[in-house]
Amino acid sequence: MFLYEHLPKTHEWPAVERKTRSKMGYDYIKFSNGVELRAVAEGADQLRQYTASVVYCTEMAFWDFAQATWNSLRPTIEGGGRIFIDSSANPGFFCQLVTGQLNEDEPEEEQEAHDVIEGVHEYRRNGVYVARIHYTADPSKRSEEWKTNEKKGTTTEGWEREYEINWTVSAEPKYYPEFDYNRHVALEELHPIEGRPLLLSFDYGLTPATIIAQTTAKGQLLILSELQSWDCGMLAHGRAVQAELQTFYSGYEYTAVGDPAGNQRAQSDEKTANEILRDRYGIIVEPGELTQTGRSEAVRYYLTTLTPDGKPLLQLDPRCQMLIEAFTGGYHRKVVAGRTLDEPEKNEYSHLMDCLAYLCAKLYRDNTSMSDKWKQMTRGRMHRAGCM
């Protein structure tokens, strides 16, 4: 209504025939030419009851169910409608939509990229036309003086997210604030070390995920690859994992750990996810740590501990974009009624982060068990030596 009331008076606009208002503002407006504007809450199923010709989604990067909503909106395009989305930067599905790949059939690079004016970059990706608008598109905002004045009173993360379109900075409270991009992300691509076994970690469900990793002789955990599947079962995901291993890690031995729920039987064929991996692909999966506390503390141990030569104990390949986005804010604490909880928000990053947590917990448990065993053996020898 604000926009309508401020339209130029030089043109004859359709009259407002009906409008309804709620506490949040106007939620329905009908014009004399038959056009209706209707406010709809975010969510995957909110629009299924309507047949919209135009859908406008605002600040989609901050939606809890952005991916599910996008999938439900696709029929709108097929029927000849349009979808408009705007948002400032934030890790999540919207970031993947405009900067990454939604499926393996999409090209990795931008399509038809061009710059119309300074500060505006336009291209196509994932079947979407994207316009990236930086504040420098406004000539009055290109001076260092303007930038210095505007940065006063803002946090570094807030400026990077809202002004510099930095997708790695989240507005949500990070679940692992111990993560440091400059320390925990390798400067170049990581390669497997010959002669050392691989470590696989699995998360199940209809969004199965897998991490392929390796440890060095000094105990550093190298995350070599991430595999995230959408809307498929373990049978299809297992094929992707098998292809990845045969293509890039042929000849390497491996051990695997996974979600403890992998031993629960499916209602369709009464086979567990672990049984599918074992019988179809020869992958034997050890159940991982059950508690969230045990898993998260293991990840924090690897984030905050150094190797004997002073290197971070956890190192990510720079190609593991979803894990990096998760660490930089995509995987964050749940906020309910303004209160930040200790548990993480379940979202599209949860599956890969659970994989990492199972892996870290297994390694931490194994290392602790070996350390305790060594201490007991050494203590006994020292005691006997003392008696002599």
Rank of each mutant, 00 (worst) to 15 (best):
M1Q: 14
F2W: 14
E5P: 15
H11A: 09
P14C: 01
A15Y: 13
R18W: 10
K19Q: 11
S22I: 07
M24D: 10
I29M: 02
F31Q: 02
A39V: 05
V40C: 07
A41Y: 14
G43M: 14
R48G: 07
V55F: 05
W63P: 01
D64F: 12
A68P: 14
N71V: 04
R82G: 03
I83S: 00
A89I: 02
N90G: 14
G92Q: 01
E104V: 14
E108Y: 11
E109Q: 14
A113D: 10
V116I: 06
Y123C: 06
R124L: 08
R124S: 10
N126K: 14
V130Y: 00
S140I: 05
W146R: 05
T148D: 06
T155M: 13
T156P: 07
E157V: 08
G158D: 07
N166F: 04
W167F: 06
S170N: 06
K174D: 00
Y176M: 01
P177K: 00
F179C: 00
F179Y: 03
Y181G: 07
E189W: 04
Y204D: 06
L206H: 12
T210C: 14
I211S: 15
G219V: 09
Q220N: 01
L222F: 11
E226F: 05
S229D: 05
L235R: 14
A236E: 10
H237I: 15
A243T: 13
T247M: 08
F248L: 13
S250Y: 12
G251P: 10
E253F: 11
T255S: 00
T255N: 00
Q264S: 08
R265H: 03
Q267P: 08
S268T: 06
D269A: 06
K271P: 03
D279A: 09
Y281G: 07
I284K: 09
E289T: 04
S296G: 07
S296L: 03
Y301K: 02
Y301I: 01
K311C: 11
Q315C: 13
P318M: 02
F327N: 04
G330S: 01
G330Q: 03
G338H: 10
L341N: 09
L341D: 14
L341G: 08
E343A: 02
N347R: 15
Y349C: 13
Y364D: 04
D366F: 04
N367Q: 05
S369L: 09
S371Q: 12
S371D: 11
K373P: 00
Q376A: 14
M377E: 13
R381D: 06
R381V: 11
